[in-house]
Computed example of a mutant assay.
Amino acid sequence: MTDKTDIGFFSSSIGLGHATRDIAIAQHFDGILAKFVTGNGAAKLFSEYGFSVNDSYVPPKFKIKNGSLQKSLKWLFAYYQYYKECIGIAKEFVKNEKPKVIVSDEDFASLTVAQQNKIPSILITDILETRFTKGIGAVIEKKMNQSMKNIIQNCSVVIMPEFGQDQDNIKMVGPIVRATKHSRDELREKFSFSRKTITLSVGGTDAGMFLIEKTIDVFSKLNLDADLVVVSGPSLKIDTQNVRNLGFVNNLHEIIYASDLVISLAGKSTIDESKAYGTPGIFIPIKNHFEQEDNARQIGYQYEDVFHLDTLIPRKLESCRTSVETNGASRAYEIIKKYLT
């Protein structure tokens, strides 16, 4: 090894939202050597941005039926096994790379290893506990949440992409989104968006197939002077004859900016990019997925709105653009940088 690693950056590989906000932060790493550990589409995204990435993580998939999360307790047990595998990966990384700091975006295995090795540990998260299960499963999950709480309390600092007051070791920095150097008109020309454009995005997993099918069906029946563009991500192969499918993209934030409406699952990063660029959005959560349901509820949506797309789409397509100022990425970078000196 010739160059000493400054930051071991472990990014959850469940979806692409963690990777997109981590890239927003890492683009400030001038002169800082960071090596990323993740997997699936997230690894592909980091690689396309030119970062050094270890494609090691293979997380358990959510089982979704008719837009609803199924067998959450079984998934929780699978996730615990995955966590133990990630512990081994993190130990090997620390042994070989000897990073000065461990930064984790909701990857608790790397935080555990960092704290065992007395390496400064920084957590990026928008949740402080999980609520996937009910009944007997909730008892098991409660114990896992207590372990997670202990890890959080032992972190050097916790960065939350939310507005609010700092508390203890938790620093609120506001939404963390990727920046663009282009104007909206430049991007519309780049993407050949000549009419009003609706972008349908479902992230990095196959969990959003229900939303793709429902949106395409509704759009085909609406008489709109608009185009529908689908960003199906790395995990879905879809046959779309009447819409434009972009598949996997590494610049969804720019596509959102250029669009007139975004329809998506209720992942926080996509919601934040929609707010930052002022693009109206319809955000449908996976049913029984507590995090997505919370995200959606905060902006006035719920799972049942998937059955109201025929009225929501025309109305939201005519909404005014209102952007939210944020410098969450630079603020997060400044916090991380302090632990490298």
Rank of each mutant, 00 (worst) to 15 (best):
V202P: 02
K196D: 01
G204S: 02
K190N: 10
T199D: 06
G208P: 00
S183R: 09
F191E: 00
R195S: 10
F210L: 02
G204F: 04
K214S: 11
R195I: 04
R188W: 12
E213D: 12
G203Q: 08
A207Y: 06
V202Q: 04
K214T: 11
S183F: 08
L200S: 02
G204Y: 03
E186V: 08
A207W: 05
R184G: 02
E189Q: 14
E186K: 13
R188M: 11
I216V: 15
K196F: 11
G208H: 03
T215I: 10
S194H: 12
I198P: 15
I216H: 05
F210H: 03
T215C: 08
L211S: 01
D185V: 09
A207V: 05
T197A: 07
S183V: 06
D217C: 05
E213F: 05
R195K: 15
V202C: 08
S183Q: 07
I216M: 15
L200T: 01
F210E: 00
I216G: 01
K196P: 01
E213S: 09
D185R: 05
G204H: 02
K196Q: 14
G203Y: 08
E189D: 13
I198E: 02
D217E: 15
K196I: 09
D206K: 14
S192D: 14
F193K: 03
I212C: 03
F210A: 00
S192T: 09
E186S: 14
L211I: 13
L187V: 12
K214N: 10
D206G: 14
D217P: 01
S201P: 10
L211A: 04
E189H: 12
I212Y: 02
I198Y: 07
F193D: 00
I216K: 13
I212W: 02
L187Y: 13
S194V: 07
M209Y: 09
M209L: 15
V202D: 01
V202N: 02
F210W: 07
T215A: 10
E189F: 07
R188Y: 12
S201A: 15
R188V: 07
I212L: 12
I216S: 07
T199E: 11
T205S: 15
K196T: 04
I212N: 00
F210R: 01
F193C: 01
V202I: 15
T197M: 13
F191N: 03
F210Q: 00
F191V: 04
F191K: 06
L187N: 03
K190W: 07
I198D: 02
L187M: 14
S194R: 11
T199R: 08
T205C: 12
T215L: 11
S183L: 07
L187A: 03
V202Y: 11
D206N: 15
R184E: 10
D206Y: 09
L211C: 05
K190S: 09
I216C: 12
G208N: 02
D206R: 12
L187E: 00
T199W: 07
I198S: 04
G204V: 01
R188P: 00
T199Q: 10
I212F: 06
S183P: 03
L211E: 00
S183I: 06
G208S: 07
S194A: 10
T197W: 14
K214M: 06
S194D: 13
G203V: 06
D185M: 06
S194C: 05
